[in-house]
């Protein structure tokens, strides 16, 4: 089968696009880096909104990025066809701002940026990934809406997130959003390779549910 084409979106202020690109390449995707003005997403099955500080996170994290052409185009694509969206860290924040994932991300209870490895649970698997954020405390008003999601949980909540939520997967719409950085534990020597769990899950899902090949 042909490699799955994946786009990594570099907004002004995004700073994790290169290692995210490397991670996708490592897992066997055919990755591209595109910018916020790209509207034609037809060739891509996966769109990744990577980590960083889009538009300096001025006003609020992800607030300005949601008004870019690419987010508009993403919404249109979602209505028309199967497309997988992955939001990592700032990407998670953009997705909540854009209304593509329920809830919001607030300042950590410590009031400080936190960079450390955390243990996570997702689909019966336990693994470690690094977090690096200042606004990663998940909050949701209408708790029932969480029933639509598979939850990625912290085993030891670092930031005060509601229900230990580190990430959410909307399996109906194929949108996965998480605060930890899977791309950082994958291609660097001496680092654990557990970022694989997230990227391989995405690859398998696309192959199975978009192409029925698995």
């Amino acid at each position: 089968m042909q490699k799955i084409k994946a786009a990594v979106v570099k907004f002004f202020g995004t700073n994790c696009e290169k290692e995210t690109y490397d991670a996708l390449l490592n897992i066997g995707f055919e990755p591209y880096i595109i910018n916020q003005n790209e509207e034609n997403l037809n060739k891509f099955d996966l769109i990744v909104l990577p980590g960083g500080f889009s538009y300096g996170d001025y006003v609020s994290c992800g607030r300005i990025a949601k008004y870019t052409p690419i987010i508009n185009s993403l919404k249109n694509n979602l209505k028309k066809r199967k497309i997988f969206i992955l939001g990592i860290c700032n990407g998670f924040q953009i997705l909540t701002e854009a209304g593509l994932i329920e809830g919001a991300l607030l300042e950590n209870t410590s009031g400080k940026f936190i960079c450390k490895d955390v243990e996570l649970k997702f689909l019966d698997k336990t693994f470690k990934l690094p977090i690096a954020h200042h606004q990663g405390r998940y909050y949701i008003k209408n708790k029932e809406k969480l029933n639509d999601y598979e939850i990625i949980k912290y085993t030891n909540n670092p930031n005060g997130s509601y229900c230990d939520i580190a990430g959410l997967y909307d399996k109906k719409n194929y949108i996965l959003a998480l605060m930890p950085h899977p791309e950082r534990n994958l291609t660097t020597p001496f680092k654990p390779k557990e970022g694989k769990i997230i990227f391989e899950f995405i690859k398998n899902t696309i192959e199975k549910e978009f192409y029925g090949t698995l």
Partner: peptide
């Protein structure tokens, strides 16, 4: 102190 710094962005940091 150091947990407030992103030590791993760019994906190059081994230790």
């Amino acid at each position: 102190i150091y947990s407030q710094f992103d030590m791993e962005v760019q994906g190059r940091t081994a230790f």
